[in-house]
Amino acid sequence: MSTLPTNLSYTEEHEWIEDRGEVSRVGITQHAADALGDIVFVQLPEVGEQIEAGQTCGELESTKSVSDLFAPVTGEVVAINEAVEEDPSVVNSDPYDKGWLLEVRVTSTGATLTAQQYSEFINE
């Protein structure tokens, strides 16, 4: 298991959030990417769409299954990572950097965990 970036917040649904000031970047964790297997399709919300923490905001399709993407924050989608729509495997190979999924102008956050808490959660 790779080391979790400590500058990120995590959810029990295996998303990560990077606070970048007015906008937060969202992706899935390495744990989730590994559990899903090879990701072959990513469906993300539209730019301008409002998402709500805890609600479904997209899908990740792998060779094994289709999994919902849950919004870890509430706010307006201001950008999506078109690179992962073109090449979904980037989510598997680099989930914390090039494999980010969307950026949100956050109005409120859901329940989040620190890297330490998330590590304990996935190792229970």
Rank of each mutant, 00 (worst) to 15 (best):
Met1Ile: 12
Met1Gly: 15
Leu4Ala: 10
Leu4Gln: 09
Pro5Tyr: 07
Pro5Phe: 07
Thr6His: 06
Asn7Gln: 12
Asn7Met: 05
Ser9Pro: 00
Ser9Ile: 00
Tyr10Asp: 08
Glu12Thr: 15
Glu12Ile: 13
Glu13Met: 05
His14Asp: 12
Glu15Tyr: 01
Trp16Arg: 06
Trp16His: 07
Trp16Asp: 10
Ile17His: 00
Ile17Lys: 01
Ile17Asn: 02
Asp19His: 13
Asp19Thr: 14
Asp19Gly: 05
Arg20Thr: 14
Gly21Trp: 03
Ser24Cys: 14
Ser24Asp: 13
Gly27Trp: 03
Gly27Phe: 03
Thr29Tyr: 00
Thr29Pro: 00
Gln30His: 14
Ala32Glu: 09
Ala33Asp: 05
Ala35Arg: 07
Gly37Ile: 09
Gly37Trp: 00
Asp38Phe: 00
Ile39Asp: 05
Phe41Thr: 13
Val42Pro: 03
Val42His: 07
Val42Met: 10
Gln43Ile: 06
Pro45Gly: 12
Pro45Asn: 11
Glu46Ser: 14
Glu46Pro: 02
Val47Cys: 08
Val47Thr: 15
Val47Phe: 03
Gly48Cys: 08
Glu49Trp: 01
Gln50Ala: 14
Ile51Trp: 01
Ile51Lys: 02
Glu52Gly: 05
Glu52Phe: 11
Thr56Gln: 13
Cys57Trp: 05
Gly58Ile: 07
Gly58Leu: 02
Leu60Trp: 02
Ser62Lys: 02
Ser62Phe: 00
Ser62Asn: 05
Thr63Val: 15
Ser67Glu: 13
Asp68Leu: 11
Leu69Trp: 04
Phe70Asp: 05
Phe70Ala: 10
Phe70Trp: 10
Val73Asn: 04
Thr74Phe: 02
Gly75Trp: 01
Gly75His: 04
Gly75Thr: 09
Val78Asp: 06
Ala79Trp: 02
Ile80Ser: 07
Asn81Gly: 06
Glu82Met: 12
Glu82Ile: 11
Ala83Tyr: 04
Val84Gln: 08
Val84Glu: 12
Glu85Ser: 09
Glu86Pro: 00
Asp87Arg: 07
Asp87Tyr: 05
Ser89Gly: 11
Val91Asp: 10
Val91Lys: 08
Ser93His: 07
Asp94Leu: 06
Pro95Met: 10
Tyr96Trp: 08
Asp97Pro: 00
Gly99Glu: 08
Gly99Phe: 02
Gly99Ile: 07
Trp100Tyr: 03
Leu101Trp: 02
Glu103Cys: 07
Glu103Asp: 15
Glu103Asn: 10
Glu103Thr: 08
Val104Gly: 03
Arg105Gly: 06
Arg105Pro: 01
Val106Ser: 04
Val106Gln: 01
Val106Cys: 02
Thr107Asp: 08
Ser108Trp: 03
Gly110Trp: 00
Ala111His: 12
Ala111Trp: 00
Leu113Glu: 07
Ala115Pro: 00
Gln116His: 11
Gln116Val: 15
Gln116Phe: 09
Gln117Glu: 15
Tyr118Arg: 04
Tyr118Trp: 05
Ser119Trp: 03
Glu120Ser: 14
Ile122Asn: 09
Asn123Trp: 04
Asn123Pro: 04
